[in-house]
């Protein structure tokens, strides 16, 4: 799966699950500061990523480098898919 396809699916998920009219969601939007991601949001995102891309996520993957924005999240998924 291409990186932009991964990003598009994550983008759609975030827009549908955590709607936020006041911010335009782009690849660089800080998910932790500007979007609707809190502790539950992160666990829901993990559940989505595991189901949608059939990857396994571990505790060590939950960090600021991977979850910072859609771009970093997509790269993380792409790395996992190609592993």
């Amino acid at each position: 799966m291409e990186l932009n396809q991964i990003a598009a699916r994550i983008h759609r998920f975030l827009e549908e699950e955590f709607p936020n009219d006041s911010v335009e969601l782009t690849g660089d939007t800080d998910l932790l500061d500007q979007w609707f991601i809190d502790s539950l949001g992160i666990t829901e995102t993990i559940i989505f990523l595991e189901g949608a891309f059939e990857i396994e996520i571990s505790r060590a993957d939950i960090n600021g480098s991977n979850f910072q924005n859609i771009a970093s999240l997509s790269e993380f998924v792409a790395r996992r898919l190609s592993a």
Partner: peptide, 10 residues
Amino acid sequence: MPGLLKSIPI
């Protein structure tokens, strides 16, 4: 949790 996630190596 955001506080923890924002912790990035330096």
